[in-house]
């Protein structure tokens, strides 16, 4: 080390003595008022050494839940940050889609790894319908904690599929202004779906649309428009 540092630079701010004085000053005198856990690391690392991703365990944790409030706040910031930098609604949706794509790539790899790493012969999905079903159930469960409410095939166009979510959790705390009515923040989810399909070898354009109904005012449809090559391939495999 080129320069010397105090033993635990992080702890110096919240040393035990100051933490206890806070306790002392607080009206109730109870430490449980503060959501921060007592900051006493069990195994102090030497200063300057950061934990390495390769040392971490990526198997499924027992508690999967992420704070909904924290996520809503972050997503709200993502939307407003993006909105300041775009020309129109289409542009905004495209950017949210791109952000979702980055998430989807990782969801796909991690989800499959968790499901298959113990298996003797790990499998990939190569057929379209099972892949779509696994998006509706497994991807949704991995990302939102519940399967999507439905999946439909378009009647008019053979290359279109729709995934339906009656109450998308990422939009729960967002109300879109009247003048931006076509905007669906679920474009982010569409990006996730697009990345998963792309990764599995089913290139598609995926968009999100508001399709409110009487009992589900926030109902959203994720529209998947597959490329022609995908359908051609399915035809060949079927034979």
């Amino acid at each position: 080390m080129a320069y010397s540092q105090p033993q635990h630079p992080r702890l110096s701010v919240l040393s035990n003595s100051s933490a206890s004085s806070v306790d002392h000053l607080s009206p109730t005198g109870s430490a449980t008022r503060f959501s921060l856990p007592p900051t006493v690391p069990t195994s102090p690392r030497p200063a300057g050494v950061r934990p390495n991703i390769y040392d971490r365990n990526i198997t499924k944790p027992r508690v999967l839940d992420v704070s909904g409030a924290a996520f809503s706040f972050m997503f709200a910031e993502i939307v407003s940050y993006t909105q300041k930098r775009v020309a129109g609604i289409n542009d905004l949706e495209r950017r949210l889609n791109t952000l979702g794509y980055r998430v989807g790539m990782r969801v796909l790899e991690l989800m499959t790894w968790r499901a298959e790493y113990t298996s003797k012969a790990p499998k990939r999905e190569i057929r379209l319908l099972p892949a779509l079903m696994s998006i509706q159930t497994q991807v949704w469960r991995a990302v939102f904690g519940k399967p999507a409410d439905g999946i439909q095939k378009s009647v008019e166009n053979a290359d279109e599929y729709m995934i339906i979510d009656n109450d998308p959790s990422i939009e729960r705390h967002i109300s879109v202004p009247k003048d931006m009515k076509q905007l669906s923040c679920s474009s982010f989810t569409a990006g996730i779906v697009e990345a998963v399909l792309d990764g599995l070898g089913f290139p598609a354009r995926v968009t999100a649309h508001n399709t409110p109904s009487a009992e589900h005012p926030t109902k959203t449809t994720i529209l998947i428009k597959l490329e022609k090559s995908v359908l051609d391939r399915e035809e060949i495999i079927k034979q």
């Binding site: 790539m105 796909l108 790899e109 499959t112 298959e116 012969a121 790990p122 499998k123 990939r124 999905e125 190569i126 792309d198 990764g199 599995l200 070898g201 391939r233």
Partner: peptide, 28 residues
Amino acid sequence: MRKENTMYLKSVDKFNEWTVSAFITPGN
């Protein structure tokens, strides 16, 4: 990889003394 749904594809190709084995992750 279009026909096989396993990630591990053993000995997909041979060239002289070399054998090529492959592994395809779900993200391709």
